[in-house]
Amino acid sequence: MSQLLVSGILLGGLYAMISIGLNLIFGVLRIVNFAHGEFIMVSMYLAYWTYFYYKIDPYISAFVIAPLTFLLFMTVFRPFVVKLADSSHLGQVFITFGIGIVLQNLALMLFSADYRSVDTAYSRMRIALGEVQFSLARLVVFLLSLVFTAALYYYLKKSYMGKTIRATMQNRTVAMLMGIDTRKVYVFTFALGAAITAFAGGLLLPIFYVYPTIGFNFALIAFIVVILGGLGSIPGTLAGGFVIGLTEALSGYFISASMKQLVYFCIFILILVLRPAGLFGQRGTEELGVK
């Protein structure tokens, strides 16, 4: 039983990690990003090939790939983000879904559909605490998800830029009247979300195989985690990750591994019926950007 709980919590941390970037882009900015999974897939491949050719550990290359992603979105992809921010939600769905498909097929063309993985010194290392066992790589992701959650929470809550981001999301026109260059805010926040997502991708590589369509599984979970936790709530993402992770671990054992998605979707629906703004969502914020 304690093994199940530990596995579930570690898995929850991993789910939170892949969702934090989406929470910035979708939860805070309200840009529907259906290419989120493909962002993870691309960064996993980047980490993979860096390891393959240069023998650079994915934990190290993640620290290069993430800032690089940030810079790319601040410069080369800037017009793309501006266009996306100015589009309707439906437009964003089409645009990002299209980008996702293009990225998937590019990966398929360039790298084939082979399952690839790295074999670092620690990727098969396991830690035993009494009867409970878990892999080191998962513990690393879990701890980093806590670090990212705390850092981002304080950044959004306390820093002036964080307040600027929240103000812009709550009322874009008035934000302009305050002297905020709202496009800059959108591009910056999107780039930050993409960078955190890329970082998460690097962390996943020692745990999962990478192949062109792996993103879909992650994106589905990330969307559920973000909505479950509450759009724009950073602690909510962590909580949402734990709920899904624990549900998956427990239902996999007590019911059936093939039923886990059914179970967590039922829980997802139940929580949304009871708390439409999500577990930690501020009441009323779920409608921002819709009205």
Partner: peptide, 8 residues
């Protein structure tokens, strides 16, 4: 209509 940021 004031235009305050309601959740700030």
């Amino acid at each position: 209509g004031r235009g305050l940021f309601p959740f700030l």
